[in-house]
């Protein structure tokens, strides 16, 4: 299985930077053959389109992972398979324009990549609920506790044939 784990998110935003934290941790692990891991934030969704188009043979599976703001007040995470259903064109263009001006958003990645036919069929999104969205190099303590579990999930989604 040729798969890519790609994180999305600004650095130094405590739990909102959970995506890059996951990727940083996975980069120190030995992953299954054919599984690549990288931070897709730099270059943004357009950079991701280019990268995915250039990869030969193409990835068969893609796992996007990133922090999202939530109001529950609890650190947590959820994952789901990307349906491939695009929002209305106005919203897609808004996300492209945003990408071009340097703004990062987890869902903009699958949306923009889907729009330009750069996605494989099998795409997963892992959303990590940020408890603390303020400035900080490290995740919050509850998030720190949760990260190994999230890393294991992300690995499973990327590595297992029948994820």
């Amino acid at each position: 299985m040729k798969a890519l784990i790609g994180s999305v998110g600004y650095f130094n935003l405590t739990d909102l930077s959970a995506g890059p934290h996951v990727v940083e941790a996975l980069q120190n692990e030995t992953l299954a053959s054919g599984v690549d891991v990288c931070d897709l934030s730099y270059g943004g969704p357009i950079g991701a389109v280019h990268r995915l188009n250039e990869t030969k043979p193409p990835y068969e599976r893609l796992v996007f992972v990133g922090g999202v703001e939530n109001e529950s007040g609890e650190a947590g995470y959820r994952w789901y398979r990307w349906t491939g259903k695009l929002p209305p064109p106005d919203e897609v263009q808004a996300r492209v324009a945003e990408a071009v001006s340097g703004v990062l958003d987890l869902l903009s990645f699958p949306i923009v990549c889907q729009q330009f036919q750069a996605l494989p069929e099998d795409v997963w999104i892992v959303e990590i609920d940020a408890l603390d969205c303020g400035h900080g190099l490290e995740p919050s303590p509850p998030m720190k506790k949760l990260l190994p579990e999230i890393c294991a999930l992300v690995r499973r989604l990327a590595e297992e044939e029948d994820a």
Partner: peptide
């Protein structure tokens, strides 16, 4: 807000 319609820093 934002000028870029979805989120953004301007």
């Amino acid at each position: 807000d934002p000028v870029t319609r979805v989120a953004g820093a301007l």
